[in-house]
Amino acid sequence: MTVPSASMLHMRTGGIRLIICAALTALAGGFATPAHAQRPAGPGPRVAHRAAPAAPAVVARAAYLYDATTGTIQLSKEATRRMPVASLTKVMTAYVVLREAGLNDIVTINAADVRHAATNGATGASLRAGERLTVRDLLYGVMLPSGADASHALARVYGPGQAGFVAKMNAAGRSLGLTGTRYTNPDGLPKPGGGHSTARDQARLAEIALRDPALLTIASTRRHTMPVSKTHRAHTWTNTNKLIGKTPGALGLKTGYTRAAGYCLSFAADRDGHRLIGVILGDAKSDRRFRTANRLLNWAGDQISGTQDPVDDL
């Protein structure tokens, strides 16, 4: 038997290694990457993904904003907290009147209506005893200048009487599911006390109230003028809601203030086919509630449209 020399073993081992390497190379051929693709790629185009901006800050004690078209809640802060809502109460007053009266019905103002606003230090529509106005015009007097004289006259006639009217307000609230709401008068004044609602309830009420074409028209009006006639003096009422005519798509709805309630605002706007409804309760500054509402509407509108434009102040 011939014993292989060391040189022969080395040649055989080397050959085996060459065969193995060749086999592995052939096996990997199907997975080979072209040489040009193996080179590090240069910097490609970048796609910028901006995070959706956070909701604007709300300083007021409570706030609520939702998309009534989709039911999406956009913002909620202490939204179920029960608190006084001042003249936002008059939204329910208008809602009840529109179910009890005809818009062309005539109401005669009496001394008690005028005295009610004057003695309580409430805002009025400058009505005088003996004037006769339509329900439609009195609703302008309720919603634009927030006239407690106008709301008192309507409640007196369509209660009939204040107590009867308040009972109808609370019955309407129950039927609408406003579980955190209780009314004690038709205007939101502190007397007799005990009246309260929530930001969420008031937003729900606003959404329903604005379905009425007459109330939608009234609440969206910046100024209503009545020339003098045989039945009443001339009146010009300007909407206390500063969003009207300034914020795109703004529809109203109502302002309010008492010391206990702070500055309140029920607001709405149509944006890109969506109706946004909001409520701010208990702000310490009058103008801030409007700036906050404007920012919230613009922010929510941007979420709907997919844009992220700068939020403009009023």
Rank of each mutant, 00 (worst) to 15 (best):
I19E: 02
I19T: 07
I20P: 07
I20N: 00
I20Q: 05
C21E: 08
C21T: 14
A22E: 03
A22R: 00
A22K: 00
A23E: 08
A23W: 09
L24R: 00
T25L: 12
T25M: 12
T25P: 03
T25R: 00
T25I: 12
A26Q: 08
L27P: 06
L27E: 10
A28P: 10
A28Y: 14
A28Q: 09
G29K: 01
G30H: 13
G30M: 14
G30V: 15
G30S: 14
G30P: 09
G30D: 15
A32K: 01
T33H: 01
T33Q: 09
P34D: 13
P34H: 10
P34M: 03
P34V: 02
A35I: 13
A35D: 11
A35C: 03
H36M: 05
H36E: 09
H36G: 00
H36C: 04
H36P: 07
A37L: 14
A37W: 14
A37P: 03
Q38V: 05
R39W: 04
R39Q: 14
R39Y: 08
P40Y: 05
A41Y: 02
A41K: 11
G42Q: 10
G42N: 05
G42M: 07
P43T: 15
G44E: 09
G44F: 07
P45L: 13
P45I: 13
P45M: 11
R46I: 15
R46Y: 08
R46G: 00
V47K: 08
A48Q: 13
A48D: 12
A48V: 15
A48C: 04
A48Y: 13
R50H: 13
R50A: 15
A51Q: 09
A51M: 08
A51I: 09
A54M: 12
A55M: 09
A55G: 08
A55R: 04
A55K: 06
P56T: 04
A57M: 10
A57K: 10
V58K: 01
V58H: 07
V58A: 02
V58Q: 04
V58N: 03
V59R: 13
V59G: 03
V59I: 11
V59M: 11
A60S: 13
R61A: 09
A62V: 02
A62R: 05
A62G: 11
A63C: 06
Y64A: 04
L65A: 01
L65W: 04
L65R: 01
L65Y: 06
L65M: 02
Y66P: 01
Y66V: 00
D67T: 10
A68F: 06
A68H: 08
A68N: 09
A68W: 06
T70Y: 02
T70H: 02
T70D: 00
G71L: 06
T72S: 09
I73W: 01
I73T: 12
Q74P: 00
Q74G: 10
L75I: 02
L75R: 00
L75S: 01
S76R: 07
K77L: 10
K77V: 05
A79L: 01
A79Y: 01
A79R: 06
T80F: 02
T80R: 04
